[in-house]
Design a protein around this nucleic acid. Structure first.
Length: 552
RNA sequence: UGCCUGAUAGUAUAAUGGUAGUACGACGGUUUUUGGUACCGUUUGUCUAGGUUCGAAUCCUGGUCGGGCAACCA
């Protein structure tokens, strides 16, 4: 089936390269995160693309941390990134760091200075910005641009030696201050930062900029296909210029459109704000579009890989409906998750004609999708049960086929019952529903001849365990919070988390284990939260079941 | 009034000069001891105006609209 799928434009490029014998048939990609935040679903797209390509064409992928800005980076992020990539199911050929190449990069810079293609500029950031001109006006050179090679060499060495404070000088490429492409107007190559680096410590006080680190790292590793997102398209001429001047391995850069998904944000900067401002419970809050958040929410690696496969890879801006992600996790979990019964919003059901103190034990298959039901488990039945409050309707509409006075419904894996009467408190809330059961309708041995339309889930009052259940909704109230007026945080959905502290679950659920998703029948897929304990079970709802019932 | 880049159903994504497909969604139906699943069916599209061609989503020209670019961020 995968051979029937048409190729995306990058696969086409790779196949052309393979056909023409380029790189001797070698395919080496890289995934290059900056360790300044946690990975999100957009990174998953890039991971699946880079690792998937290598896998498909017998190549390899390096994990390379783009750690050239020490003030923003941290080992916490390095560790989380490695965990997330592994969890998604991918193996990198080498774990590398741009900082591994600092010596090499320094030599590259010296080489460019020696060729008269780079110079040390003493201007302030503001002056440099002003001298760059605007997109419609060319930039103007300053006096530093004409410094001699010897002077530049000495100054750059002094920069490295720590003779100057932050911001005092920068190293710039000498290109074209009138270039229509702003990135070619003498871009910065090095800046001074007396900052502690998470790997190189205090060995350096000058750090290369992205444009003078990324392509060079690609070349050092002999990356064949360097895949990045669309905003780097205007950097490509620079990428190629440096490679050409340095006469290093000619890695090629290709750009695809990043993933956007509605009702969330997809930038590390914004996600960091949600974390630091306390709108969520950390990077792995189940509402976050981070890999770790999705994992805690109950998403599986396979479902995320499938999602990345389905969204495709192209060059046009896109906005993916979060519904597609939900489809992918339902599709996966439907086949694997064991079915259990849990009553989220309980109301008491009393079966008047069922003897007090009597207990039946019923059983139900773990998964009706599996050949043999994937085994089964037992659960007790008694005179008093918890059922879902909205599985009863006092004045049922014609199309409602659950419980009502005089209406019959099947208790899943047990008996058919008929609603008889209700008891209300002073405020008019239903406190008890009374019903009678049909003894001949016993599940698996039904001789009643009665056909009911509806089946509802239930839990025995006497035997039920309790749990906390957390229901999640979209984090934002609008499709594209970043594109609205004002601050994106103004559009946060105040009801994105609903915690139900008194949920009744069938006894077998006490054996639930983390990482093992379950389906609460008719309610959705759930997974144990990382903070769950045997004494206080906490379930996260991954996703609801698709609801084909439109009320009214 | 610069440069780069893109435009195909509601959303994504194919068709690489030769019947505009697929998936998700929506809608309808069959099955069902989950209003789930499965299965079947319906619906909706080439930004625009010209041109080349026997034939254009595809090639050419103009326009329109979207995105990116002027960080000592990546």
């Amino acid at each position: 089936m995968s051979e029937e799928r048409s190729l995306n434009f990058i696969e086409e490029i790779v196949e052309e390269d393979l056909a023409s014998g380029k790189n001797n048939g070698r395919v080496l990609t890289r995934f290059p995160p900056e360790p300044n935040g946690y990975l999100h679903i957009g990174h998953a797209k890039s991971i699946c693309l880079n690792f998937g390509l290598a896998k498909k064409y017998n190549g390899q992928t390096n994990l390379r941390f783009d750690d050239t800005n020490p003030v923003k980076e941290d080992v916490e992020y390095v560790d989380s990134i490695k965990e997330d990539v592994k969890w998604l199911g991918f193996e990198w050929a080498q774990e590398l760091y741009a900082s591994d190449y600092f010596d090499k990069l320094y030599d590259f810079a010296v080489a460019l200075i020696s060729k008269g293609l780079a110079y040390v500029d003493d201007s302030t950031a503001e002056e440099i910005a002003a001298q760059k001109g605007t997109p419609t006006e060319p930039g103007t050179p300053n006096q530093y641009r004409s410094r001699s090679v010897e002077e530049n060499l000495q100054l750059f060495a002094d920069m490295k030696a720590g003779k100057y404070p932050d911001g005092a000088k920068v190293l710039r490429a000498k290109l074209d201050l009138a270039a229509p492409n702003m990135h070619l107007r003498d871009p910065l190559m090095y800046r001074i930062k007396h900052a502690h680096h998470h790997r190189t410590g205090d060995a350096w006080c000058i750090y290369p900029m992205y444009d003078f680190a990324h392509g060079q790292s690609d070349a050092i590793e002999q990356i064949t296909h360097s895949i990045c997102t669309l905003e780097f398209v205007p950097h490509r001429p620079l990428y190629e210029w440096f490679i050409e001047q340095l006469e290093v391995f000619p890695s090629k850069q290709y750009e695809f459109a990043r993933l956007n998904m509605n009702y969330t944000v997809m930038s590390k900067r914004k996600l960091l704000q949600l974390v630091t401002d306390g709108f969520v419970d950390g990077w792995d809050d189940p509402r976050m579009p981070t890999i770790s958040g999705l994992r805690r929410r109950g998403y599986t690696p396979a479902s995320i890989r499938e999602f990345c496969e389905r969204i495709g890879v192209a060059k046009r801006e896109n906005m993916i409906d979060v519904g597609l992600l939900e489809f992918c996790i339902r599709e996966d979990l439907n086949k694997t998750a064991w079915r259990r019964m849990a009553v989220l919003d309980p109301v008491k059901l009393i079966i008047d004609n069922y003897p007090e103190g009597q207990t039946d034990v019923f059983s139900g298959e773990n998964n009706p999708e599996a050949e043999d039901g994937d085994g089964s488990r037992e659960f007790p039945f008694g005179r008093e049960l918890w059922i879902e409050r909205d599985d009863f309707m006092e004045n049922p509409t014609k199309k409602y086929f659950r419980l009502g006075i005089g209406l019959m419904v099947r208790l899943k894996n047990a008996y058919i019952i008929k609603g008889e009467s209700i008891v209300k408190d002073e405020e008019g809330n239903i406190t008890e529903i009374h019903a009678t059961y049909i003894p001949e309708s016993k599940s698996g041995n039904d001789t009643s001849g009665i056909n009911v339309k509806g089946t509802i889930h239930w839990v025995s009052v006497e035997h039920a365990k309790t749990a906390e259940v957390r229901l999640y909704d979209r984090l934002f109230q609008v499709e594209d919070p970043s594109n609205e007026d004002g601050d994106f945080k103004d559009y946060i959905n105040p009801n994105s988390l609903q915690a139900l502290s008194n949920v009744f679950i069938e006894p077998d659920l006490a054996n639930a284990t983390p990482c093992k998703p379950v389906q609460f029948m008719r309610k959705g897929y759930f997974v144990l939260d990382k903070n769950s304990t045997p004494d206080k079970l906490v379930f996260n709802r991954t996703v609801t079941l698709k609801d084909g019932w439109v009320k009214k």
